[in-house]
């Protein structure tokens, strides 16, 4: 068996996790890291409440693929737009495209066909990586997808399989087949899961892992444990002051959950501290050294490191 392709050499990284655990932050960190190593990287976001641009320090992308730095790109994607692209590719005549996309059957179809919208998101990444469509002119080599918060992102990851099950012919079926093969290839696609060291997020991360093993036959390639409280300084007494008490107990809760993950999560893990920095590019700057050191420790950094040693 060939050795696994390191996480940072794969072409699609899907960042998943419960709402509010710092998924977008981890996507931004991954994007910055990959881009700094010269890989042409796209940060792809599907939440209509765009906020990745805040962390990248650029204006909202408004659906366009915009350049953040020479090797880092950003796009806030509307699934409906991707579906329209597929229609456009097959019809080519603007008047007909409008006719189809404005029709009642089309709107309801998009809503009703299970997995179609989710698949469109993956399809967009796939098309870019395979040099299809006008935006592929940017030469994107790796896509970091900030997955939707609802569900565990499992619906997104398994969408091509669901679509392949319900649609058996035509371009969507073809797309589903290609994407199912792509998503099943762990040399190309990696899932990164984000959690807080708190009971419920950890529980959901464990459930997501089980779901992935069941549906995609593999666990996430990396677990990022975000927002860790620092340990109370040695010799500090916690009694008397309620905030010191809160500090000590939040830290103890983190430790408890870290131990649970140590026992139950096989595979690479990375820890990120809670830092006193407002959300924005400064936060990415502040956490990037710890993040990169963590990638290194977790043993998921790619080929050029291996080549050096």
């Amino acid at each position: 068996m060939p050795p696994d392709t390191p996480l940072t050499r794969r072409s699609l990284l899907v960042v998943t996790g419960k709402g509010g655990v710092g998924k977008t932050l981890v996507a931004a960190l991954l994007g910055r890291h990959l881009a700094s190593r010269g890989r042409r990287t796209l940060l792809l976001e599907v939440d209509p409440r765009a906020n990745l641009h805040e962390l990248a320090g650029t204006p909202p992308s408004a659906g366009d693929l915009v350049r953040v730095s020479p090797t880092l790109f950003l796009q806030n994607l509307q699934p409906a737009f991707v579906m329209e692209q597929v229609v456009r590719d097959h019809l080519r005549v603007d008047a007909l495209v409008r006719r189809v996309t404005k029709s009642a059957i089309y709107k309801h179809f998009i809503d009703a066909a299970p997995g179609l919208k989710e698949m469109a998101i993956l399809g967009h990444a796939w098309r870019l990586l395979h040099g299809m469509g006008p935006e592929s002119a940017h030469g994107i080599e790796v896509v970091v997808l900030d997955a939707p918060a609802t569900g565990h992102g499992l619906a997104l990851l398994t969408a091509p399989f669901v679509v392949a099950e319900v649609i058996d012919q035509g371009p969507f079926a073809e797309m589903a087949g290609q994407l199912a093969t792509f998503m099943g290839d762990d040399q190309q696609v990696a899932v990164v899961t984000v959690t807080l060291a708190e009971e419920m997020p950890v529980q959901e991360a464990l459930e997501l892992r089980d779901g992935l093993v069941e549906r995609l036959r593999r666990p996430p390639a990396l677990l990022v444990i975000n927002g860790l409280y620092p340990e109370l300084p040695r010799g500090r007494t916690r009694r008397g002051d309620p905030t010191t008490e809160l500090w000590a107990r939040r830290w103890a809760m983190n430790e408890r959950e870290l131990r649970r993950l140590d026992a139950r999560w096989e595979g690479p893990r990375l820890r990120l501290p809670l830092v006193p920095v407002h959300r924005g590019p400064e936060l990415v700057d502040a956490l990037l050294p710890a993040f990169e050191a963590g990638l290194d420790d977790a043993g998921v950094i790619g080929a050029d490191r291996a080549a050096r040693s």
Partner: peptide, 22 residues
């Protein structure tokens, strides 16, 4: 004409079995 442009396209796009289920 409309049938050819919209519905005919849907037939090609997703196939009849899904449409039948729907």
């Amino acid at each position: 004409f409309v049938g050819r442009s919209v519905e005919g396209f849907f037939d090609r796009l997703v196939g009849l079995s899904l449409l039948r289920d729907m």
